[in-house]
Each structure stands twice: as C-alpha cells, then as structure tokens.
Computed example of a mutant assay.
Amino acid sequence: MLGAARAVTVFTGAGISTESGVPDYRSPGSPWRVHAPIAFKDYLAEPALRAEAWRRKFAMDDLYAGAVPNRGHRAVARWVEVGLARTIITQNIDGLHAAAGRAGDDIVELHGNGGHARCLGCGTRYELAPIRARFERDGALPQCRCGGIVKSASIAFGQSLDEATLRRAVAASLGCDLFVVLGSTLLVRPAARFPELAAGNGARLAIVNREATPLDAAADLVLHADIGDVLEPLNRLHF
C-alpha cells in the first residue's frame, strides 16, 4: 500500500508519542487526569484558575521534559524527507514531529503547541522559561505588553481551533491518495473528521493503533500494534 502511494497524509495522535514517555489521555492512571487542563472559559474568567492552569502545565511538562522522537516520529519524518508524505496532521502538542527533523510547513498542529505561549489578544509569542521563573518566584501570571492574557499555545478544552490550521488539515486530507492514522482513537472531533474526508474523496485509509477505532470498518488496512514495531521494518523495506 505504501509503495503504491503517490501522496501520503499522516495523521497522528497521542499513541505515537507514548514510546517517547509522553503519557496519553485515556490510559488508566494517566497523569493528564491528575493534572486535567482548565477549561478555556474558566481560564479567561478567573485569575486563580489561570494560576492553577500554569501549575498543572508545568507539572506535566516536567513529566516528559526529556522526551525525544521515537521510531514512529523518525519513520514519518523519513516519509516527508523522500517526498512520499506531504503533510503530518497531529493532535499532539509535544513538538516531537518537529524535533524529528521536519520543518513547520510540513506539520499541522491541530491542538497547538505546548512548547511556548501566546497572547490571546495580539498573538505575540512568549517563551516558557521566563514565564515559569516569575510564576514560581512570586506567583506572577504572564501578561502581554498589549494588556492581553497570555496562555500556553496549546488549545484548551472549549477553545476554538485555529481556522487557518483547520483549512490546512482539510487541504491535506483532500489532496492525498493514502491517509495513514497513527496512534489515534479517532474519538475527538473535529480531528476525526479528516480521515473521513480523505476516504470520502477516494483515498485509501490505513490505521495503526493499539485499540480499535470507530473507522476500522471503513479502513483498507487496520493494524492493532505498536507504531514503531510496524513502521521501523516498513521503512527498512522501502527506504
């Protein structure tokens, strides 16, 4: 299937990063349940909840501070490098696809990026290290020079996805002849809409995920296996 494809779009979820030590959301005992993100409306409304959101974020950051790209990230980066894959659409905020060597133009981060912060007013980017230093020193919440609220650049519960990002994801879904899902349960919408768009436009659909997904029955290939175990030998065969 991969060898016959001319244009591949890759869609990744939390499952591609678990080999790197980044916890997923639904496993029993997941730290995401202990440090659950604060809803966007609450973040905007209450300074005390903004402070709690930053505390939880930094606690989660510490859990996977040493994470590096794994076999799955490296395999997908190779697909882009050789021109097989044009776009990586990811639900993840960990930045590991970029760390695997891909330029930002290749990656569509549906849920933003947890590696920096932005002003919700003017969009100015802020680095996390000085924000954390001030927060841990005196509890100060970050505020933009424009007076706007500064928040992690990841998308919070209840926060709208970026329209330009969605347009890029739609274009990548409609512009491929093979859509490969790696490590996503396909339960979160609108993210789960993209493999449906691709399949509805005639693309073949392949899913590699440890657990069953709602689209397994519609897929041309389904493998319930570890991503690295599948992609590493596949890349050795083709590249």
Score class of each variant (00 low, 15 high):
233 P>H: 03
78 R>S: 12
41 K>V: 13
211 E>G: 09
204 R>Y: 13
170 V>C: 10
95 G>I: 02
41 K>E: 15
54 W>T: 08
168 R>H: 06
160 S>N: 14
188 V>I: 15
223 L>F: 10
51 A>P: 00
18 T>N: 00
90 T>R: 02
53 A>S: 15
47 P>C: 07
163 E>T: 15
31 P>A: 03
217 A>D: 14
221 L>N: 04
146 C>Y: 04
88 I>P: 01
237 L>H: 12
22 V>S: 01
62 D>W: 07
129 A>N: 06
111 H>G: 12
159 Q>L: 11
201 N>Q: 14
142 P>G: 08
198 A>F: 07
121 G>C: 11
126 Y>M: 07
54 W>K: 02
9 T>D: 04
187 L>T: 15
214 P>W: 11
74 R>C: 10
50 R>V: 13
55 R>K: 13
177 D>Q: 06
117 A>F: 08
194 F>Q: 07
126 Y>N: 00
189 R>G: 13
33 R>G: 11
192 A>N: 11
207 I>A: 01
40 F>I: 09
54 W>Q: 03
230 V>P: 04
107 I>R: 10
99 A>G: 09
114 G>F: 00
54 W>G: 04
168 R>Y: 05
128 L>K: 12
172 A>H: 01
72 G>N: 04
223 L>M: 14
64 Y>M: 12
160 S>H: 14
24 D>N: 12
31 P>W: 03
231 L>K: 01
20 S>A: 14
86 R>P: 00
116 H>D: 12
180 V>I: 15
182 L>A: 09
201 N>D: 15
27 S>P: 09
176 C>L: 07
29 G>L: 09
56 R>G: 00
157 F>H: 08
13 G>H: 00
199 A>C: 12
141 L>P: 04
156 A>H: 05
117 A>Q: 02
1 M>Q: 10
230 V>A: 08
178 L>H: 00
38 I>M: 06
128 L>R: 09
71 R>V: 10
140 A>F: 10
136 E>W: 13
114 G>T: 01
14 A>L: 09
62 D>Q: 11
108 V>L: 05
120 L>A: 03
134 R>T: 10
46 E>G: 00
149 I>G: 06
179 F>E: 02
155 I>Y: 01
176 C>I: 09
107 I>Y: 12
93 I>C: 00
87 T>P: 01
157 F>N: 11
131 I>C: 04
31 P>D: 05
54 W>M: 07
185 T>M: 07
203 A>P: 11
175 G>Y: 02
113 N>Q: 09
25 Y>D: 07
189 R>Y: 15
208 V>G: 05
137 R>P: 00
64 Y>T: 10
106 D>R: 15
205 L>K: 00
82 V>Q: 13
